[in-house]
């Protein structure tokens, strides 16, 4: 079954002076798909994500995100996506409830919506007892699960996750992926970067960036066959070793 496309990129390019950070990348991501966006440090992932989130205007090429154009409709894009990274997710000195209310408010959700869904979320995450504590007192794993829930609280079409599980223990890392699966089942498209190659296997499709280009794109199964590798780790190493530019 052909999925409805929620991200399309065609020849998307970003240059800084004479340095081409992102070099004419093209791909499509379908609704409810978990799309792994891999690449070595410095391959151009962050620059590409910034363009897709409406934070950086491309130098060349075309792209739409949630049906909006990355040149002219960046504000609409921001309203229809969620974003979470390891570095930036929640405000440490706000409580759990305050963080939820703050982010939902920014996305223009009604008082009624926030009230109802906050309780549901706190129940689901078993965070009722901690709901009035500052976020900084939560263990990292809980914080990351809460951050993900907050990033999709306003029911975006797409959520961008930039290394969401870095440094998280192996049990919580898997609970986190369970939440990703559930979000995808409910129709949210998940665009995720990771340095854990076992997590690449959990994606429906994976792209691997090398020196600003997408050098591989396909299901984990296809890529392993194509590169005659037994694991995604080996696929990644084969490709990333070809890189000629540093970070």
């Amino acid at each position: 079954m052909e999925r409805e496309k929620v991200i399309t990129a065609k020849g998307l390019t970003k240059r800084f002076g004479d340095f081409t950070a992102v070099d004419a990348i093209s791909f499509e991501v379908g609704k409810g798909e978990i799309f792994g966006f891999l690449g070595a440090n410095g391959a151009g992932k962050t620059t590409a994500i910034r363009m897709l989130c409406g934070l950086s205007i491309p130098t060349d090429g075309e792209a739409t995100v949630a049906g909006f154009d990355v040149y002219r409709q960046t504000e609409q894009i921001k309203r229809n996506i969620g974003y979470m990274s390891q570095k930036f997710s929640l405000y440490n000195d706000l409580t759990v409830r305050e963080n939820i209310r703050f982010f939902a408010g920014i996305y223009g959700k009604s008082h009624q919506f926030i009230k109802e869904n906050t309780e549901r979320l706190l129940d689901r995450l078993h965070l009722q007892a901690e709901s009035n504590k500052q976020v900084k007192s939560l263990p990292l794993g809980w914080k990351q699960k809460l951050a993900f829930s907050v990033a999709i609280f306003h029911e975006p079409d797409i959520v961008f996750l930039d290394e969401p599980t870095g440094g998280v223990d192996p049990v919580t890392r898997r609970e986190f992926w369970n939440m990703i699966y559930e979000a995808a089942e409910s129709g949210i498209t998940v665009f995720v970067t990771t340095h854990y190659m076992d997590e690449a296997e959990y994606c429906n499709r994976v792209s691997i960036m090398v020196d600003g280009r997408i050098d591989a794109l396909g299901t984990p199964q296809d890529l392993k066959q194509q590169f005659k590798a037994e694991s995604m780790d080996n696929v990644f190493l084969k490709l990333a070793r070809k890189a000629t530019r540093g970070e």
């Binding site: 690449g39 440090n41 440094g167 990644f236 990333a240 890189a243």
Partner: peptide, 10 residues
């Protein structure tokens, strides 16, 4: 090696 890609880690 935290936050370092698989090649640099090796």
């Amino acid at each position: 090696t935290t936050g370092v890609d698989a090649v640099s880690r090796k």
